[in-house]
Every structure is written in C-alpha cells, then in structure tokens.
C-alpha cells in the first residue's frame, strides 16, 4: 500500500437525491415524533380551558402535513430513479443478478465480520444498502397507505379516499392503527443502523460517505476505479 494515493472526486448524489434524502429525514423525524405523541399523548398543563389550547390538534396537523411531504417527496424520488444518474437508478435497489448477491455477501462480511473489502468498491449505494432501501420503500408504502387510510375518514382528501380499501382489507381501523404504530419502530431501528453504518464506513474507509449526502461528492482511489 503506497503512502500517497491519488483520490478522484466523483459527483455521486445529484441535487434531487440529496434533497429527497434530507426532506425524507425531516419528514420521518416529524412523523415519528408526532406519531408517537398521537399514540401516547403526554400531559400538558391543565390550567386552561379547552377553548384556549389546541396542542394535540397541532400535533396531529403536523403529522398529516409531514405525511403529505413524505408522500410527494417519495413520488419525486421514484421519478428520479428513472431519469437520474446511474447511482440514483432504480436498478441499484434490486439485486437482479448473481453478482449483486455476491456483493451483498461481501458487504455483510465487511460490515459484520469487519474484514477488509477485496472486491470492487461500491461508489453509490452498496448492494446491501440498496436492498435494504428497497425493503424500506415497501415499508414507506405501507406506512403511507395505512396512514392515509386512517386519515381518510377525517378529511375530504383524495389521498385518504384512495387508501380507503386498506381498512376492510386489514379488518378494522384498530388493526390498521396497530400496525401503523408498530412500523414506527422500524424507522427507529432503521435510523439507528443506517446512521451508524454511514459513520462506520466513513470511519474505516475514509471516502467521505457522510459528507457525500451534503455536497454530493465521494472520493475514490484512482487504482480502485475500474470504470
């Protein structure tokens, strides 16, 4: 390993991808916090009459608003998966060939057994991350559908009506609410592991993984770039 390495700066995450990422992070944080509060409201000052305060209504409003941001943000990102650069492309999320699965095993070795990577380095998402995000999109969809199904009856929203079939499918609103609430914890777990792994990879690889979501650039050793 020579001491002086030439690193190339690669523009990986385009603006819409980064914007999606941070809007999504913000929306999920708001949704998570307000959602938890809706499930478990805490006691605020009881000195005032009901007509002078509206805090729970505000919490719910924020939840619904963040839900809309989340939905449209997701739709834009889906679109970008077809028109964006190769790192943003939809096929980075689905392991369609054997090489992709081999890469996943390799990443698991690096992440869990902490071996040093030998195979080709991933510039965009690594294949495992891509797959996890793909699963995450389904959870996003589930949360969106159950959320709007619960929201529908209290609004005239088209989106609520579009999800109206979810309630009879799952049995009753109680069941929908149960799973909508339970999936909050998926986000908690996801965020925990996601943030940690970003730091981990940056920590041991030093390729600017963390800052790449801010500026869009990643750094890669010239000798490891084969395309």
């Amino acid at each position: 390993m020579p001491a002086t390495q030439t690193y190339r700066r690669l523009y990986v995450w385009e603006m819409p991808v980064r914007l999606y990422h941070w809007l999504n992070a913000l929306a999920i944080t708001v949704l998570g916090v307000t959602g938890y509060l809706i499930g478990r409201p805490f006691t605020v000052g009881y000195a005032q009459e009901a007509s002078f305060q509206y805090w729970f209504g505000t919490v719910r409003f924020l939840h619904f608003m963040a839900g809309y941001v989340f939905l449209f943000n997701m739709l834009v990102r889906t679109y970008w998966g077809f028109v964006g650069n190769r790192f943003a492309s939809w096929d980075k999320f689905i392991p369609l060939n054997r090489q992709a699965w081999r890469d996943i095993v390799e990443v698991l070795r690096i992440d869990i057994l902490q071996t040093r990577g030998t195979g080709p380095i991933h510039i965009g998402h690594n294949r495992l991350a891509g797959l996890i995000y793909f699963v995450t999109f389904f959870i996003f969809m589930f949360q969106g559908l159950t959320g709007f199904a619960l929201y529908g009856p209290m609004s005239h929203s088209v989106f609520g009506n579009l999800a109206a079939w979810v309630v009879p499918l799952m049995g009753s609103e109680a069941v929908v609410r149960q799973w909508h609430h339970a999936m909050l914890w998926f986000y908690v777990l996801f965020t925990l592991v996601h943030v940690y792994l970003v730091f981990y990879h940056d920590y041991v690889e030093g390729r600017g993984t963390t800052s790449s979501m801010v500026g869009g650039w990643k750094f890669e050793r010239e000798d490891r770039l084969d395309d």
């Binding site: 605020v44 009901a50 305060q53 729970f56 209504g57």
Partner: peptide, 9 residues
C-alpha cells in the same frame, strides 16, 4: 372532542 384537540385527557 374539544378536549381531545386541546390535549386534555
């Protein structure tokens, strides 16, 4: 319902 919106439980 107003107590709900006001967060008075």
């Amino acid at each position: 319902r107003p107590y709900y919106d006001a967060g008075l439980f």
